[in-house]
Amino acid sequence: MSGLSDTDTETESIKKSFLRQLVGFISGFGILATFCLLVFLTIGFIRFGNFVSTIKNEPGLVNADGIVVLTGGKNRISTAVALLQNNQAPRLLISGVHPTTSSESIAELMNIKKSMLDCCVDLDRQAKNTKGNADQTADWVKNNKISTLIVVTSNYHMPRSLLEMHALMPDIQLIPHVVAPTQPGQGKWYANPGKLKVIAIEYAKYTAISFRKSFDRVDKTLAAYTSAYSS
């Protein structure tokens, strides 16, 4: 008849006790980490909401080599056209135009002559989202030898737009020109369900892209180190 000695029994008891403590520690650490992450995201959300709801444009006329406006929000295009007509830049890119929208319709929408559209306005029909806007804008900037660019979009959309564009155009001076939407409602953003929803969705997208950009930088750094050590 075989059995465990007192020493073996004590060893097994110590192992089980250690495993229970380890599981408890990991569980506790996971709960603490989750709590800290939620606090971090909540603080970030509040700061993001306060920033986009109070961001102001530079006072006076700001001149640049070009203007890009990202479609998708009310008054964005009319604001960009006003900047063009004020001679704040010689060319305007409208990024995200629907493929079936004609130049005549654009001219009518912007309330300008088609001759001005033909001479000074370029239409991007390829972009389907903010990343696409940045891609097409980067190509346009390169082709037109632009070094300073006014970016026109809604206030809540501006941080994510600049993040995407700066990643592709780190040497270009980006000048934000925000358009404060008349919707969804007036009042403090956190007290208005419409504004709160829009800002929450935009903050989630902005945070996801920020993490993606961080991982991209880590990948590039690791690739550089790998290349350096392998050569």
Score class of each variant (00 low, 15 high):
Met1Leu: 14
Gly3Ile: 02
Gly3His: 07
Leu4Asp: 05
Asp6Ala: 13
Thr7Glu: 10
Thr9Gln: 12
Glu10Ile: 12
Glu10Asp: 09
Ile14Arg: 15
Lys15Arg: 10
Phe18Asn: 10
Leu19Lys: 08
Leu19Asp: 04
Leu19Arg: 11
Arg20Met: 09
Arg20Thr: 14
Ile26Pro: 00
Phe29Met: 06
Thr34Ala: 05
Thr34Pro: 00
Cys36Asn: 02
Cys36Thr: 04
Phe40Met: 06
Leu41Cys: 07
Leu41Lys: 01
Leu41Thr: 05
Thr42Lys: 01
Gly44Lys: 03
Ile46Asp: 05
Asn50Lys: 08
Phe51Cys: 00
Phe51Met: 10
Val52Met: 08
Val52His: 01
Ser53Gly: 07
Ile55Gly: 03
Ile55Pro: 00
Ile55Tyr: 06
Lys56Cys: 09
Asn57Val: 09
Gly60Val: 10
Leu61Ile: 15
Val62Pro: 09
Ala64His: 04
Ala64Tyr: 02
Gly66Pro: 09
Ile67Thr: 10
Leu70Gly: 06
Asn75Tyr: 14
Asn75Ile: 08
Asn75Asp: 15
Arg76His: 11
Ile77Arg: 00
Ser78Ile: 15
Val81Arg: 02
Asn86Ser: 10
Gln88Ser: 03
Ile94Val: 14
Ser95Gly: 13
Val97Lys: 00
His98Gly: 01
Ser102Asp: 03
Ser102Tyr: 00
Ser102Asn: 04
Glu108Gly: 05
Glu108Val: 07
Leu109Phe: 12
Leu109Arg: 03
Asn111Leu: 13
Asn111His: 13
Met116Gln: 14
Cys120Ala: 14
Val121Arg: 03
Val121Ser: 04
Asp122Glu: 07
Arg125Asn: 04
Arg125Ala: 01
Gln126Asp: 11
Gln126Met: 09
Ala127Phe: 10
Lys128Gln: 15
Asn129Gly: 12
Lys131Trp: 10
Lys131Ala: 14
Gly132Met: 08
Gly132Phe: 12
Asn133Asp: 13
Asp135Tyr: 04
Asp135His: 03
Gln136Ser: 05
Thr137Asn: 03
Ala138Thr: 06
Trp140Asp: 00
Lys142Ser: 11
Ile146Trp: 01
Val151Met: 06
Val151Gly: 01
Ser154His: 04
Asn155Ile: 02
Met158Pro: 06
Leu162Trp: 01
His166Ser: 06
Leu174Ile: 01
Leu174Gly: 01
Ile175Val: 13
Pro176Gln: 13
Pro181Ser: 14
Gln183Gly: 11
Gly185Trp: 05
Gln186Gly: 04
Lys188Tyr: 09
Trp189Pro: 03
Tyr190Gln: 07
Pro193Glu: 07
Lys195Ile: 05
Lys195Met: 13
Lys195Asp: 03
Ala200Gln: 09
Tyr203Lys: 00
Tyr203Ile: 01
Ala204Tyr: 11
Tyr206Thr: 05
Tyr206Ser: 02
Tyr206Arg: 02
Thr207Met: 04
Thr207Glu: 03
Ala208Phe: 12
Ile209Lys: 02
Ser210Asp: 00
Phe211Asn: 02
Ser214Ile: 00
Phe215Ile: 14
Arg217Asp: 09
Val218Leu: 14
Leu222Arg: 08
Leu222Phe: 15
Ala223Trp: 13
Ala223Leu: 15
Ala224Glu: 12
Ser227Thr: 15
Ala228Trp: 13
Tyr229Phe: 15
